[in-house]
Design a protein around this nucleic acid. Sequence first.
DNA 1: TAGGTTAGCCTACAGATGTAGGAAAGCTAG
DNA 2: CTAGCTTTCCTACATCTGTAGGCTAACCTA
Lengths: 196, 196
Amino acid sequence: MATTKSGAPAGDRRVRRTHAALQCALIDLVEDRDLAQISVADVAEQAEVSRSTFYDHYRDVHELAEAACTGMLDKLIDLVTAIGSSPDNGDPVGSLQTFFATLAEHAGLYRSLLGPQGSARVIDHIRRRITAAALKTSTGKATTTADDPDNVHAAFVAGALVGVAADWLQRDCAHTPSEMAALTWPILSGCQLRRG
Amino acid sequence: MATTKSGAPAGDRRVRRTHAALQCALIDLVEDRDLAQISVADVAEQAEVSRSTFYDHYRDVHELAEAACTGMLDKLIDLVTAIGSSPDNGDPVGSLQTFFATLAEHAGLYRSLLGPQGSARVIDHIRRRITAAALKTSTGKATTTADDPDNVHAAFVAGALVGVAADWLQRDCAHTPSEMAALTWPILSGCQLRRG
DNA sequence: TAGGTTAGCCTACAGATGTAGGAAAGCTAG
DNA sequence: CTAGCTTTCCTACATCTGTAGGCTAACCTA
């Protein structure tokens, strides 16, 4: 039986093919259907993979969704880092605009995953990754203890970004990424201030 | 067949009893088990109600969870309103502290619902209600169009509060409510500022 | 308290979930 | 190219999901 977890570049070609097929299949399906309406059988069929093979790799659709958006998230995380680490020098509004533009590129997917019919697992995963990025850029720490006060600021910023993104996507991207960046930056910068 | 939706005080005593039984059952179960591990059959059995009766009232466990926390949410919403509508006069830090204390009263429940094994539906519902409250206190508007710029600020604040709460609960409430209020308020007040 | 109305329960069913064991094929190392 | 391990697929099964129809008993109204 397969015990392989996503993570390492995976040695076996078959595993890579199966992972890619399943993740692509889910991404295709979720672009025009809510995650809650997608069954394991649907994904397996779309991926041309047997249902039992699915269970060899993922526990359920939510776990697959988490794996599928991990790669796509890398770009978003880099942008969050760019926003936070450029209080003076960089171009935070530009990074923020690219952040929203990147979301818009896969609007159907993110709307489906972050909305009411989406996945708490994916939401939590995204929030954690943004929290970690925010923590690192504002304090330099890569990890913390549970009672570190700096966690609060990072969680605040991460939650705010996810909240704004989810709201924007659910309103069918009623503003352009540029407008969203212009609206969000004044608020975000107001709480970026750190007092030594 | 029953078509009754939660909302009105409900005319029929049987409906009230069934709603109460199912909601209490879920709240009991979710206090020490993740929502994802709770089946419709579990809830029905705990509530001493037949499984088919469950489906007469709720589509699935997530819909029940949403209904079950609606009442409990009222108190939280009032507190958010109190925080936002007292920039000078009131006691925002006190309201914020009560906000965290209220979460802590049902820590198991909220942790289960907001965490990775929770419900995207509940998360979305909570975020929407806090967004509406934040919008009303900061602008006086009860409703908006999708492209109203004020939505962004409200979604920002709502997401931030949910993010901080979820993070705190998942770290097993490593700070006291009082400490959380003291840590959160400086950040929150920084982005409460409205211009024009 | 007699009336119609409606919620609750039972049974049954088709589909989805998740697990297990074994056969056949593919892969990597040597 | 071979040997041995791993992955994939198949079948089978027990459970859960969600829906439907019909019967009974509780409820509200008058």
